[in-house]
Design a protein around this nucleic acid. Structure first.
Lengths: 248, 248
DNA sequence: CCAAAAGTGTTGGGCCTACACCCATGG
DNA sequence: CCATGGGTGTAGGCCCAACACTTTTGG
């Protein structure tokens, strides 16, 4: 009774033991579309289904360190490539039934990256793929993600949509230098709507510390057009001075 | 190696065992001020310090069920009193050093209630008190909350401020019937600024499904004044149709 | 010169702030 | 009748969506 009412004064041998894992939702823009990194499961349960990359939290690492480690183990993304704030916690998922074998509480993270290079299938992950979020979330029940990862992905996308409005997270989707058209494509992909290029430009430039001009210009594409100015993101992902309003 | 890369295919005896707890930040408005329920710790570590109410997650309950149970064990609040959405998860806190005795991952919840009646000190909680958030967060390091609860409380308040803008959570701070002045006092207490009564009224009434008029009027207070109209909240805490903007 | 994309100007409308003002009550 | 708070009216300003227009490139 005592042991159940406070995380203190308990007998260390009397608490229920849980496994704690992290799962990482790695989002990127590919082909002007929001896409997510998934691993195909090579063993039961959910053998053959896709799942989010993830794994156990080790004894002496923080939850965030575990998420970074999983990311580094399965992709070519290193911690140094992740600006502060490009990896955020989504929350804990701990339904007793979420893993049929045992009680596992997982802590989900959202990672936003400009691109996903070669992946390293690790552990029981047979292979890794980058798939459009729209396609994955539109699946019929029998083809859903393993465990409760469908729910986690849904929450992650909602979180990303929200953060676009309040933080500079959009810059984590693009490289170190980018055009405003590229940045606009991020908002359009994540929000799923079209933005006016002129109004977008004014809005972005009016927000303190979202982007800074580099003075450089990018060569025009194959279709011609005026060369775009290049911009760089501010260091780290920070709250915006003012909300970037999503159109209704 | 295999066991570390995915929450599957592992040997159940090979994973690191963690203790998992829930901690609940119970916020309410008292004396026109945002206040939080804290328990005084009766045993080491942090004996004598205040902490958030919380405790172990049991083998067969969800994280949210554990949070509700803790709430019911230490206060007179029952699950039935909590509208859907008045209890939300804040996230997981799992720094290896957060509990000096062992590895504990805690999942923090935010509960918003109209009032906190008599409390039941349980377990090693010597006593419970409701204290102003401003006072608790303003404390010097030596008088801070136990564990990382200072951080959790800070995050909870920030979360609540945010949710006032985007959801109908404000109605969870007041009783089933309330005047717009009472509701306005919630926003003022949580945001820490003054709102224009007239503009507040128009804004609240313009938002779909935030409040519905009961047709009743409340008797005037001791100071006189026009009797206020009474309103009821919509069922459950829901996202607002439009953002309730916080003044800068 | 034409198409295409970047970037700038402009305008009308909606919302919001800051008040002034009226209403209904207790003392 | 006065103080107090509830509730309504309204004018000015800011922001923004929409869209026309200019600029600069490739072909």
């Amino acid at each position: 009774m005592t042991a159940e009412t406070a995380p203190s004064g308990y007998d260390p041998s009397a608490y229920p033991a849980f496994a704690v894992t992290v799962d990482v939702v790695v989002l990127t823009i590919r082909d002007r579309e929001l896409q997510v990194l998934l691993v195909g499961r090579g063993s039961a349960p959910f053998k053959g289904a896709f799942a989010l990359p993830g794994g156990f939290v080790l004894e002496d690492e923080t939850l965030e360190e575990a998420a970074v480690r999983e990311l580094e183990e399965e992709t070519d993304i290193s911690a140094a490539d992740l600006p502060t704030g490009a990896l955020v916690q989504l929350g804990a998922y701990g339904d007793p039934e979420r893993d049929p074998r045992m009680r596992v509480v997982t802590v989900a993270y959202l990672a936003v990256v400009p691109s996903i290079g070669p992946t390293r299938p690790g552990g029981d992950a047979a292979h890794a793929e980058v798939l459009p979020v729209r396609q994955v979330l539109g699946r019929r029940p029998k083809h859903e993600l393993a465990f409760d990862h469908q729910t986690i992905l849904t929450d992650a996308v909602e979180h990303a949509r929200q953060e676009l409005e309040t933080t500079s997270i959009a810059t984590a989707f693009v490289g170190p230098e980018f055009t405003l058209a590229e940045l606009r494509a991020v908002y359009e992909a994540v929000w799923g709507d079209q933005l006016d290029p002129g109004n977008f430009r004014r809005k972005v430039l009016s927000l303190d510390g979202l982007v800074t001009p580099t003075g450089q210009r990018q060569a025009s594409g194959p279709e011609g057009g005026k060369p775009a100015e290049l911009y760089a993101a501010a260091d780290g992902i920070r709250p915006l001075s003012e909300r970037f309003r999503r159109a209704r």
